[in-house]
């Protein structure tokens, strides 16, 4: 789905969301009572220090408001921008700051919902979609930690061999289904139904602590993580 179609399906009563420099900003009305703040990264933009800081600034100003308006983060990005300048200026701090801003908004009472409708990869994925309190996706989204041709180069395995291995496990290959199986994504929405209803249903459900490892176990894509984390936690508490 294109951002314009997503926004009209989310906000049938209208929205004021604008795009500038690959970033989305504005708000929409889910119904007469609920206004939703919207931020986003669109058009496969590779966020660098400037984009990450602009997004974080907007998110922190929302977090600072006393109302409980939800925050929707639309994501169609590349990986982090790979450049000398971005690293010179401390991209790691800036992306971490963006993740912190999203966490802060959630903590301050604004539900943060990531909606992955296009690509996202590597550090950009961690600091945007994965840093939201809840992450949903639309079919056709294409999250990837690393693309298979790059993996083929590093592992010195042929693309065909990698594809064959990928068929047997969701743990390394790119794509929505694989990320869903590992527990990264709460729900995959149905584009044939109004997105506003699906967002309302999500907002109506309470959000618990980070349950993504549990989903990974249920869905069979990441079966050890939950038990390992629990066991370390248990041992630490037992040792006082």
């Amino acid at each position: 789905m294109r951002p314009v179609d997503i926004l009209s399906s989310l906000f049938p009563a209208g929205h004021q969301v604008t795009e500038a420099g690959g970033l989305l900003s504005g708000n929409g009305r889910l119904d007469p009572q609920i206004t939703v703040d919207v931020v986003g990264i669109s058009g496969k933009t590779y966020p660098g220090v400037d984009e990450a800081l602009a997004l974080a600034g907007r998110i922190l100003s929302i977090a600072d408001r006393p109302d409980p308006a939800p925050l929707l983060f639309l994501v169609d990005s590349g990986s982090q921008r790979m450049s000398r300048r971005d690293e010179l200026m401390g991209l790691s701090e800036t992306l971490a700051h963006l993740a912190k801003a999203l966490w802060r908004a959630e903590q301050a009472g604004h539900r943060t919902i990531g909606l992955l409708y296009g690509g996202s990869a590597a550090g950009a994925f961690i600091a945007t979609a994965l840093a939201c309190g809840s992450l949903v996706a639309l079919p056709g989204a294409w999250p990837e930690v690393m693309d298979l041709p790059s993996m083929a180069r590093v592992t010195k395995l042929s693309l065909d061999v990698l594809k064959e291995k990928a068929a047997g496990t969701p743990v390394f290959a790119p794509g929505l289904d694989n990320l869903f199986a590992t527990g990264a994504i709460a729900e995959i929405w149905d584009p044939a139904r109004p997105l506003c209803d699906q967002l309302k249903a999500l907002l109506a459900a309470t959000r618990d602590d980070d349950g993504r490892a549990g989903w990974g176990l249920e869905r069979g894509g990441r079966v050890k993580a939950a038990a390992i984390a629990q066991e370390v936690q248990r041992l630490a508490l037992a040792h006082g």
Partner: peptide, 22 residues
């Protein structure tokens, strides 16, 4: 950073570590 051979699990683990840290 993320371990290539289990990239999805590693990426998600980093997100979980960040949330737990905060």
């Amino acid at each position: 950073g993320v371990r290539l051979q289990e990239a999805n699990a590693g990426e998600l683990a980093i997100s979980e570590i960040i949330r737990a840290t905060l």
